[in-house]
Deep mutational scan, measured.
Amino acid sequence: RKEMTAACTPRRRIINLTSVLSLQEEINEQGHEVLREMLHNHSFVGCVNPQWALAQHQTKLYLLNTTKLSEELFYQILIYDFANFGVLRLSEPAPLFDLAMLALDSPESGWTEEDGPKEGLAEYIVEFLKKKAEMLADYFSLEIDEEGNLIGLPLLIDNYVPPLEGLPIFILRLATEVNWDEEKECFESLSKECAMFYSIRKQYISEESTLSGQQSEVPGSIPNSWKWTVEHIVYKALRSHILPPKHFTEDGNILQLANLPDLYKVFERC
């Protein structure tokens, strides 16, 4: 597991931080080997919608929660590849102030007048994250320049770009939802926020969305749709870069829909 690298990086740093090793061990302890084997050997059937997909393993048909699986995938990559990410360069710098204002204007932020003026909160978020810029760049390849612009994001899987519609809320939550006081809790909560931002979430995906850094293989055609990215990038990574937690067998994120021999018997009677 320590050699797990989802995106190509030129050289690998050895990380011996106790906090990170502890988080890696927790993933191992909570892992479910049968689910790992199923995901490793599954045959992708198709997307139901951005949140759900169908896959077959041996004779069984499964309904998989793409949102939760991708979130767990990105969390584990962030923990196992800690401080070893490439950088996704933004085509132009994104001012943190503008991103924070967009987030505060969104109902998702939960902002009320009692929280104070949005401009003041946005300025605080910019200054707060600028103070964390060195650590964010060093460990997470999340790059913020001296003017308070976001200029780079971590490359977690080759050819995958997170849904940038979720970027404003991500920046807001970096400042408000991460435990910045304790090292282990900081790395864990920061990785979880980043994983949620990178995950496939239906509120940020339309039929026209593209999450891939590449064009489709047909010359002159439109960019790959999110469905292509889910199948050929995300579920491909799920084959080798995730140890599913045991609770996925109990919380409805992986559901067995049918045993195909039983279905064949039904059709034979028709």
Results as ranks from 00 to 15, higher is better:
residue 97 F to V: 09
residue 214 Q to C: 10
residue 101 M to G: 04
residue 236 K to F: 05
residue 86 G to W: 08
residue 76 Q to W: 01
residue 205 I to C: 11
residue 228 W to K: 07
residue 179 N to L: 10
residue 172 L to A: 10
residue 13 R to F: 07
residue 67 T to W: 03
residue 220 G to V: 13
residue 155 L to D: 12
residue 56 Q to F: 06
residue 143 E to W: 09
residue 54 L to W: 03
residue 167 L to R: 00
residue 102 L to Q: 14
residue 123 E to Q: 10
residue 134 E to T: 08
residue 13 R to E: 06
residue 92 E to H: 08
residue 187 F to H: 03
residue 130 K to M: 10
residue 46 G to D: 13
residue 5 T to D: 06
residue 197 F to T: 02
residue 71 E to D: 05
residue 153 L to T: 02
residue 262 D to L: 05
residue 210 T to M: 07
residue 7 A to R: 05
residue 175 A to F: 13
residue 231 E to W: 02
residue 138 D to L: 05
residue 239 R to M: 03
residue 86 G to D: 09
residue 167 L to W: 03
residue 66 T to M: 00
residue 130 K to E: 12
residue 203 Q to T: 15
residue 58 Q to M: 14
residue 193 E to D: 02
residue 205 I to L: 10
residue 151 I to Q: 11
residue 147 E to K: 11
residue 238 L to Q: 00
residue 26 E to L: 05
residue 266 V to I: 15
residue 152 G to I: 03
residue 199 S to M: 02
residue 88 L to H: 14
residue 123 E to F: 12
residue 12 R to P: 06
residue 243 L to M: 12
residue 247 H to Q: 12
residue 246 K to R: 14
residue 188 E to R: 11
residue 97 F to L: 14
residue 38 M to K: 03
residue 83 A to V: 01
residue 151 I to P: 01
residue 127 E to W: 08
residue 13 R to S: 09
residue 256 Q to F: 11
residue 178 V to T: 06
residue 102 L to S: 15
residue 99 L to G: 03
residue 178 V to C: 06
residue 7 A to G: 09
residue 238 L to V: 06
residue 63 L to C: 05
residue 49 N to K: 04
residue 101 M to W: 06
residue 269 R to S: 11
residue 3 E to A: 10
residue 91 S to K: 15
residue 104 L to I: 09
residue 47 C to T: 14
residue 266 V to K: 15
residue 255 L to S: 07
residue 44 F to V: 03
residue 103 A to E: 03
residue 79 I to S: 03
residue 82 F to W: 04
residue 247 H to E: 12
residue 184 K to F: 06
residue 101 M to L: 15
residue 174 L to K: 01
residue 161 V to Q: 11
residue 85 F to S: 04
residue 204 Y to W: 10
residue 99 L to H: 06
residue 266 V to L: 13
residue 39 L to H: 02
residue 178 V to K: 00
residue 236 K to V: 05
residue 173 R to T: 02
residue 131 K to S: 12
residue 196 M to K: 12
residue 216 S to K: 10
residue 234 V to R: 00
residue 17 L to I: 07
residue 173 R to W: 01
residue 173 R to A: 05
residue 178 V to P: 04
residue 216 S to L: 10
residue 253 N to C: 09
residue 260 L to K: 12
residue 42 H to M: 13
residue 91 S to V: 11
residue 151 I to Y: 13
residue 149 N to V: 11
residue 97 F to M: 14
residue 90 L to E: 00
residue 46 G to C: 06
residue 238 L to H: 01
residue 26 E to V: 06
residue 119 E to K: 08
residue 161 V to K: 06
residue 227 K to Y: 04
residue 112 T to N: 09
residue 27 I to D: 00
residue 151 I to H: 12
residue 221 S to A: 14
residue 85 F to V: 05
residue 229 T to S: 08
residue 124 Y to R: 13
residue 261 P to T: 09
residue 177 E to W: 10
residue 12 R to F: 14
residue 206 S to K: 14
residue 193 E to R: 03
residue 150 L to G: 00
residue 215 Q to W: 07
residue 156 L to T: 03
residue 165 E to N: 12
residue 193 E to T: 08
residue 125 I to G: 03
residue 198 Y to W: 04
residue 168 P to D: 04
residue 184 K to Q: 15
residue 225 S to D: 13
residue 62 Y to W: 15
residue 66 T to N: 03
residue 106 S to R: 08
residue 29 E to T: 14
residue 121 L to I: 12
residue 233 I to E: 05
residue 176 T to P: 03
residue 173 R to D: 03
residue 177 E to G: 06
residue 56 Q to L: 12
residue 192 K to G: 05
residue 163 P to K: 08
residue 100 A to M: 09
residue 215 Q to Y: 10
residue 36 R to D: 03
residue 244 P to Y: 02
residue 96 L to A: 03
residue 251 D to M: 05
residue 237 A to V: 05
residue 182 E to N: 10
residue 51 Q to G: 06
residue 46 G to I: 09
residue 98 D to E: 13
residue 153 L to V: 11
residue 218 V to K: 12
residue 55 A to M: 07
residue 140 F to V: 03
residue 142 L to K: 00
residue 159 N to Y: 05
residue 31 G to A: 15
residue 143 E to S: 10
residue 184 K to N: 04
residue 165 E to F: 05
residue 153 L to W: 01
residue 39 L to E: 00
residue 185 E to P: 10
residue 106 S to L: 11
residue 40 H to E: 15
residue 144 I to K: 01
residue 1 R to F: 13
residue 184 K to H: 07
residue 219 P to C: 11
residue 267 F to E: 15
residue 175 A to R: 04
residue 8 C to H: 07
residue 174 L to W: 01
residue 167 L to N: 01
residue 27 I to E: 01
residue 262 D to I: 05
residue 121 L to V: 10
residue 210 T to L: 07
residue 16 N to Q: 10
residue 200 I to F: 13
residue 162 P to G: 02
residue 193 E to F: 05
residue 28 N to P: 04
residue 141 S to Y: 03
residue 168 P to T: 00
residue 199 S to F: 00
residue 186 C to G: 02
residue 231 E to R: 05
residue 28 N to Y: 13
residue 241 H to Q: 06
residue 62 Y to H: 03
residue 85 F to N: 04
residue 211 L to Q: 14
residue 212 S to Q: 15
residue 33 E to A: 13
residue 183 E to I: 02
residue 34 V to F: 15
residue 121 L to G: 07
residue 32 H to K: 05
residue 47 C to L: 09
residue 29 E to V: 07
residue 84 N to Y: 01
residue 97 F to G: 13
residue 8 C to T: 07
residue 150 L to D: 01
residue 193 E to P: 00
residue 24 Q to I: 06
residue 123 E to S: 08
residue 251 D to Q: 10
residue 238 L to A: 08
residue 256 Q to T: 15
residue 174 L to R: 00
residue 236 K to Q: 10
residue 99 L to R: 01
residue 140 F to T: 03
residue 178 V to S: 02
residue 243 L to R: 13
residue 206 S to E: 13
residue 131 K to A: 12
residue 197 F to V: 02
residue 166 G to V: 01
residue 196 M to W: 04
residue 14 I to Y: 07
residue 106 S to H: 08
residue 259 N to P: 06
residue 161 V to E: 14
residue 44 F to I: 04
residue 111 W to P: 04
residue 82 F to D: 02
residue 42 H to G: 04
residue 92 E to C: 14
residue 93 P to N: 06
residue 13 R to Q: 06
residue 5 T to K: 04
residue 212 S to H: 14
residue 205 I to K: 03
residue 123 E to M: 14
residue 184 K to M: 09
residue 226 W to L: 02
residue 23 L to Q: 02
residue 108 E to I: 11
residue 267 F to A: 15
residue 234 V to T: 02
residue 210 T to Y: 12
residue 158 D to N: 13
residue 116 G to D: 13
residue 268 E to P: 11
residue 45 V to N: 03
residue 23 L to P: 00
residue 143 E to Q: 13
residue 65 N to V: 01
residue 240 S to E: 14
residue 170 F to K: 01
residue 230 V to A: 04
residue 147 E to F: 13
residue 94 A to K: 14
residue 58 Q to R: 06
residue 132 K to D: 00
residue 68 K to L: 10
residue 189 S to M: 11
residue 26 E to Q: 11
residue 19 S to V: 03
residue 215 Q to S: 13
residue 148 G to C: 10
residue 148 G to Y: 05
residue 150 L to I: 07
residue 12 R to S: 14
residue 206 S to Y: 12
residue 192 K to H: 12
residue 144 I to Q: 03
residue 169 I to T: 13
residue 53 A to V: 14
residue 48 V to D: 01
residue 141 S to R: 08
residue 80 Y to P: 00
residue 169 I to F: 11
residue 192 K to T: 07
residue 109 S to G: 12
residue 127 E to K: 07
residue 190 L to M: 08
residue 230 V to S: 03
residue 188 E to Q: 10
residue 50 P to E: 14
residue 212 S to N: 09
residue 33 E to G: 14
residue 91 S to F: 12
residue 64 L to Q: 00
residue 87 V to W: 14
residue 48 V to I: 14
residue 189 S to K: 11
residue 213 G to S: 13
residue 245 P to I: 01
residue 15 I to A: 06
residue 110 G to S: 13
residue 230 V to W: 00
residue 35 L to M: 13
residue 203 Q to C: 12
residue 43 S to Y: 14
residue 262 D to P: 09
residue 164 L to W: 12
residue 183 E to G: 04
residue 62 Y to G: 01
residue 27 I to R: 04
residue 233 I to H: 06
residue 62 Y to T: 00
residue 196 M to S: 09
residue 115 D to T: 09
residue 181 D to E: 12
residue 25 E to Y: 09
residue 20 V to D: 02
residue 3 E to I: 11
residue 111 W to F: 11
residue 243 L to N: 09
residue 129 L to T: 03
residue 89 R to P: 15
residue 197 F to K: 01
residue 120 G to H: 07
residue 217 E to V: 08
residue 131 K to D: 15
residue 241 H to I: 05
residue 1 R to M: 15
residue 230 V to E: 00
residue 240 S to V: 11
residue 48 V to F: 06
residue 110 G to A: 11
residue 261 P to L: 06
residue 102 L to R: 15
residue 191 S to C: 10
residue 168 P to A: 10
residue 18 T to Y: 07
residue 178 V to W: 01
residue 186 C to S: 03
residue 113 E to N: 08
residue 158 D to Q: 14
residue 190 L to D: 01
residue 204 Y to M: 06
residue 153 L to E: 01
residue 167 L to P: 01
residue 95 P to E: 06
residue 83 A to R: 04
residue 206 S to C: 14
residue 40 H to I: 12
residue 162 P to M: 02
residue 262 D to M: 06
residue 86 G to I: 04
residue 181 D to K: 08
residue 17 L to T: 04
residue 119 E to D: 10
residue 177 E to I: 05
residue 61 L to W: 05
residue 156 L to P: 00
residue 1 R to G: 11
residue 126 V to S: 09
residue 2 K to Q: 14
residue 36 R to E: 12
residue 17 L to N: 06
residue 135 M to N: 03
residue 223 P to N: 14
residue 67 T to N: 05
residue 51 Q to C: 07
residue 95 P to Q: 15
residue 151 I to F: 13
residue 7 A to I: 06
residue 51 Q to E: 12
residue 221 S to Q: 09
residue 134 E to C: 09
residue 187 F to K: 01
residue 44 F to G: 00
residue 121 L to M: 09
residue 86 G to L: 13
residue 151 I to W: 12
residue 25 E to F: 07
residue 16 N to P: 10
residue 36 R to G: 09
residue 8 C to L: 12
residue 157 I to E: 02
residue 48 V to L: 08
residue 170 F to Q: 01
residue 22 S to G: 15
residue 91 S to N: 11
residue 30 Q to A: 13
residue 13 R to L: 06
residue 226 W to N: 00
